[in-house]
Design a protein around this nucleic acid. Structure first.
Lengths: 222, 222
DNA sequence: GTGGTATGATTAGGTCGTAAGCTTATGCAG
DNA sequence: CTGCATAAGCTTACGACCTAATCATACCAC
């Protein structure tokens, strides 16, 4: 009888599938998805590119793997209220997407086990909070839209800190002919002094969406 | 004196920059961004790949060009109320992103003239409706988050019609061990008969977000 | 030992973007 | 009409990429 699983002899592995995926995540985090090549992964784990194919089917498998790895960093809701659970899920999704800027855009189209587990947990949290299947799907979809879209925008911003934000604003003001974009100019001049802090905006919008969902759920709760 | 601009002899152009970008959009629409190569563009316009470089700086220039082309399909708000203007802008953004599935994810990171014009117009619409610069930026950011995120999710769905949706649900139910994802199962069994129509969800969520923004804007209007 | 097996290296073929140089076709000056 | 400046498009070529196929190596069970 053949052994169903496990190694039965052979040279000891210098690297594992997890080493490969871990290295891939680090490369993508540091230098972006376009820098993620089989060669760069191999170099990082100390192996020729072709050797990676012993641990990974192909590059697509690597992408699926790192997406699932990133997904597994997101906290699933537990026994808390639906609103607290949804908020925690949304915030940790945001954090994971900022930590792994390459993930937005490939996350949703590569559903792995971690993704399935999370969808199931969030839907369970909502249903436990009194949402019907219909309302739970609707609510989850809306929150997810907000979270993904916010991250998509945030990650494409040319600044990370308020100081950089002011500098970029000033730059835009100078680059274009005065009057071409009056409202963008108003933003560039008015926003920096108005107390607007981009880092806080995610929470503001999220609260606004959750408030709206609360109103949405009340009639169904009766 | 040398002539500053215009053609002074030379072979007549078989193709124009616009032909190149148009072809690029068609290829990306039909076969996805990964099928968009200089060679495939050349083939479509009936020219060798290298000839394209007479009309286009490099492939990045092509990408910038088609993003701006897609952006120019979005309707800017005009003289209507801020809510109507924002809704029209959001809906036409959604339509454009569905028409050009490759655009989500590259749209925001490649700001061209069309993009600038639109941002300016939407911010103007909001400010005209009584929003402060601060509130306008906040509101625009929230709506945009919702729109981009919704499209990102919609485009990654494995179905387009309600019938396909039912088929996919049934498929999921069978593929996985019963009990592994109870809430996903509940969705797969319960959603198809509940009157849930994905095509309507964009408008539902958008209305929910706009309602919330209306409440947000009232205190500032005084 | 010795054979089976998993691991990693090598070789090679196809696709990609694009640099450099060449050919061809046009309009204008003489 | 002649010839030249100019622009459009073609050819060749190079380096980087993914990966199929094959080979060498090192370990374990026997």
């Amino acid at each position: 009888m053949a052994v169903a699983s496990g190694r039965r002899g052979g040279r000891p592995a210098r690297i594992s599938r997890d080493d490969v995926l871990q290295a891939a995540v680090e490369i993508a985090d540091r230098d972006g998805l376009e820098a993620l090549t089989m060669r760069s992964i191999g170099q990082r784990v100390g192996v020729e590119a072709m050797s990676l194919y012993r641990h990974v089917k192909d590059k697509d498998d690597v992408l699926d793997g790192i997406v699932d790895l990133a997904f597994s960093e997101i906290e699933a809701p537990e026994t808390e209220s639906w609103r607290a659970g949804l908020e925690r899920h949304a915030r940790s999704t945001h954090d994971a997407l900022v930590r792994h800027p390459w993930a937005v855009g490939v996350m949703e189209s590569r559903a792995g086990p971690a993704s399935m587990r999370h969808h199931d947990a969030v839907l369970g949290c909502l249903r436990g909070g009194g949402f019907s299947v219909f309302a739970a799907v609707r609510a989850y979809n809306i929150v997810n839209s907000y979270v993904y879209g916010f991250c998509l925008q945030e990650l494409s911003l040319p600044f990370r800190t308020p100081e950089e934000q002011s500098a970029v604003s000033a730059d835009i003001l100078e680059r274009y002919a005065p009057g071409a974009y009056p409202n963008l100019e108003a933003v560039a001049t008015g926003l920096p002094g108005s107390g607007f802090v981009y880092a806080e905006e995610f929470g503001v919008g999220l609260a606004l969406v959750l408030d709206a969902l609360e109103r949405l759920s009340e009639p169904g709760k009766g």
